[in-house]
Design a binder for these strands. Structure first.
Lengths: 344, 344
DNA sequence: GTGAAAGCGCTAACAC
DNA sequence: GTGTTAGCGCTTTCAC
């Protein structure tokens, strides 16, 4: 069990009988610039490869202040939406030599503040964040320190960051209008209580649609609870109070799945004629009977834009002070649950 | 936009007019041992808190060789099982002052090797891994370097690591037997082709059960494909070839959901009398009609054991050379799909 | 009880 | 073109 001491740049220098500076230049692709002979460059590169020398990234970080690490902060890494985002970001980050450290905020402001300062102490080079409300000052402080940061899924008011979002308002507006066009009249909007931009946008889209069509508005904002039974009960209460509803729009994936559980438990027969559309898409909606129409977010595209934008900032490709706000369209996937007829 | 220079231990030392050594001792809880006056300790601690000084973890790492980082390597972070594991591990790691850097192997041996050496270069303190077959040598090398490593979900043959697994074989044996007891006779086992220990175990449990009951064995090992349609088609083919099947056991979550899609597409009416049990549980199975019985893995428990064991190793609490292999029981959740009668 | 100083492995300013 | 050397910010040995 020989605890082999890892090679350092000094070892290489000694063995090759040249200075470690030269090696450093060669390894950092500055040979040309420093006009180091092609011959020497080859020699060093071959030797390095042969002995399998890898520069110690920690020493490098200490010196350069760069860690080649991206801090990914999501609401909850166990949520399929965020997990899929994480997956995509990981791929591209790795390809570009970056590692990802992740954490979940639970939309908890205090926790997020602690995590942000953890990332900061850790010297992550860039941030990809789905921020909860209440961390505006901390984010501003990051910006002031010129740390690149990209928000996604939602953004913060009065904080100028790059961000990627879908057109939430237009999406629910369109979905609601679709139900209305189908002939549904008493359409409820069931979502989680939240002041985050994306949630506000979804709510607004629904409100606009019913208002424009002079239809009544039924809004249920469930308080999020990690115990799903509580959420289900809450939705159940609402449904029982409004027996006249003929359609429901769920404002978020979890609201949708919990809502389906509630309906199935309470009045499975109502599924036959209740119009349903949910924000976000998943296997559950595809496989449910009736299959549930969904407002699908292009997850890969969101992740792609986010990591791409961050990498550009990190490489100073996009140095414009101008913040980039990218709005992506969702896709309304029509399945059986949004059709007004008995054949469902 | 004042780019405030972060305080270093030297700054503190200067301002307090004492040596940085003393500060280092105090901050690392070695004041007692070094018999530094209580008074001075208080003074330093107060000052440090007041100015918000945080030691630079990179410098610390360079010196100590510890990074307070755990490398989490899963098959695919977007998979709900692994995402849930990641979530749980994150919580506990953070509480103990560790950060997590994650990556997905895709069960690709070459990719995993690259990721392992990335983790190693990065000097992660410990590893939590769901390893693909083929990285035995690399893992052995980690062990030889005394790096703590915990495997989960599966383990590697002939490599002595700590690991956490469920009793795969017993689980499918029990599930298959349950179907048999219900009166099902032509039971298929549909899973992904894999030589990983957990998959082998699940297959074996099924085989034992049918053999013991002198029933025919129908095995379909689908080649995994990121394009789900290919998987669905493959399952469909198999089902069409074996029209006599009266029950199916799916060996993995994705096999289950893809399988349901296949059945729903091909012959939704068969759902009424086809016995179905799937490994892993999820909302889809609960909400499907009929609701699908499932072999549920206690995800939180698996994650808890994994991170707990790793933290113990990291803190040298469990220094025994003896590797710990923890086998956890699954829960067979009986829903409608496993009952043999027409009332489904 | 406290401090000076070496050194972790690297980069980069500067010297030659 | 290549080498010397000063740090990056910390821990820790050793001296006092």
């Amino acid at each position: 069990m020989p605890k082999v001491k890892k090679l350092s740049i000094v070892d290489i220098a000694k063995q090759l009988n040249i200075s470690k500076t030269t090696i450093s230049f060669i390894l950092n692709n500055r040979a040309q610039e420093k006009r180091i002979s092609e011959e020497l460059v080859q020699k060093v590169q071959n030797f390095v490869k042969e002995v399998g020398y890898k520069p110690n990234p920690i020493a490098k970080s200490l010196r350069t202040g760069k860690t080649k690490t991206i801090g990914l902060m999501v609401e909850n890494i166990a949520d399929p939406f965020f997990a899929a985002i994480a997956r995509h970001i990981e791929n591209k980050a790795n390809k570009n030599g970056y590692k990802i450290i992740y954490c979940s905020t639970d939309n908890d402001t205090q926790k997020t503040k602690a995590l942000l300062s953890m990332f900061r102490e850790q010297n992550v080079d860039g941030y990809i964040i789905s921020p909860p409300v209440g961390v505006e000052e901390e984010i501003k402080s990051l910006i002031e320190s010129h740390l690149p940061i990209v928000c996604f899924d939602r953004h913060l008011h009065d904080v100028k960051t790059d961000y990627i979002e879908v057109d939430n308002e237009a999406s629910t507006l369109k979905a609601t209008q679709y139900l209305i066009d189908q002939g549904f009249k008493d359409i409820a909007f069931i979502t989680f209580a939240s002041t985050q931009t994306q949630m506000q946008g979804r709510l607004k889209g629904y409100q606009e649609a019913v208002k424009k069509n002079s239809l009544p508005s039924y809004i249920k904002e469930v308080k999020f609870n990690p115990d799903e039974m509580v959420v289900i009960e809450s939705i159940l209460d609402f449904l029982k109070k409004h027996k006249n509803l003929d359609a429901v729009i769920f404002g978020a994936l979890q609201a949708g799945t919990s809502g389906l559980k509630a309906i199935k438990k309470w009045a499975p027969k109502r599924l036959a004629d209740l119009g349903i559309i949910s924000f976000d898409d998943c296997d559950v909606f595809e496989l449910f009977s009736p299959s549930i129409s969904a407002i699908a977010q292009p997850i890969d595209q969101i992740a792609e834009y986010a990591i791409d934008l961050l990498l550009k900032r990190l490489n100073n490709i996009n140095t414009s002070k101008e913040r980039k706000n990218i709005i992506i369209h969702t896709e309304l996937i029509l399945r059986d649950s949004s059709t007004k007829n008995a054949s469902k």
